[in-house]
Simulated scan of single mutants.
Amino acid sequence: MTVHEAYAPQQEDDRQRLMTEPVQGVLSFLLIEDHPMYAEGFRSAIHRIFPRARLQVASSGSAARPLLAHQPFDLVFLDINLPDVNGLDLLVDLQNEGIWQPIAILTGAVDALAVETARRRGALGLISKRSDDTCLESICSRLLAGDTAFEIGPSSLSPGETLEDITSRELEVLQKLATGLENSQICKELGISDSTLRTHLRALFQKMQVPNRTACVVKGIRLGWV
């Protein structure tokens, strides 16, 4: 037997070990969120805060289940409003099945009821979709250190982040935009003319202080309006 032949099995063992062992210092996150634009914005924020982090995205509870069952994550960010299941119900189901992961709930509105509900269901924290990078980094750092994060801070809503000035029809338009419909389709579904739709869009852009429909939808998702 040559030296190369004797060493080959050890090389293969080392290669397999390197493929299966996690890379030291690399954080592994899972985002369970069905809105692609919000998910992309969240991914960008996570990579700004944790440049070496790996973030996987699941768009539904059913897509997330096999990942949660077979992969350990440093943090899981779970949206409440998923297309196939309520996020809080999914959290309880996972625990009943013996699947324990460090899960923080994502929500558009952080209030006392939301905090208490998330805590009772077994979440480690509650993260507002309005959180900026500084707030998100603070919460994630605490959760990664084994702490919880449920405080309700003072309101930090900026102009364009309250529903008080948004009419019910404008909100309907925003929700239709979030589904990806074209203007003609929105007009047909709402029974309005193209000029009326454009009036609603201009009003939305002005009130929400955004430049276009994409930014309008992204902000609407972040605020929990859609």
Rank of each mutant, 00 (worst) to 15 (best):
E97L: 12
L90W: 05
I139R: 05
F150S: 08
P83L: 06
A104S: 15
D111E: 09
A118Y: 03
L68S: 02
F50P: 08
R119G: 07
Y38T: 15
D34R: 06
P102H: 05
P159D: 06
H70P: 04
Q56L: 11
L113T: 10
S131V: 13
L68Y: 04
V85Y: 00
G122I: 13
T148N: 07
F150K: 07
D74I: 04
L94Q: 08
R119C: 08
Q101E: 09
I103L: 03
Y38E: 10
S59R: 10
Q56V: 02
P66G: 10
N86E: 12
V115K: 12
S138K: 12
R119I: 09
F77N: 05
G61M: 08
R142C: 06
S156C: 12
A118W: 01
L91S: 04
T134Y: 01
H35A: 15
L113K: 14
V110W: 09
N86D: 14
A145D: 13
L143C: 04
N96W: 01
L75G: 00
P83C: 09
R120Y: 01
L68K: 02
F77L: 13
R142D: 07
R119H: 11
Q56W: 00
W100H: 15
D89C: 03
F150H: 03
P66L: 06
S44R: 15
I127Y: 02
T134D: 13
R65D: 00
E116M: 14
G98F: 06
A69G: 06
F73M: 03
D93N: 10
A118M: 03
V92I: 15
A53G: 09
A109E: 11
E137K: 11
G108Y: 09
D84M: 08
D132A: 13
A118N: 02
E97N: 13
A53W: 01
P72G: 00
N86Q: 11
A39Q: 07
C135M: 13
I103R: 02
L67V: 01
G87P: 06
G87F: 04
L78H: 03
P51R: 01
A45I: 03
I46F: 07
R65K: 13
L68H: 03
F50V: 05
A109F: 13
A53H: 01
L94I: 04
Q101W: 05
G108C: 06
T134W: 00
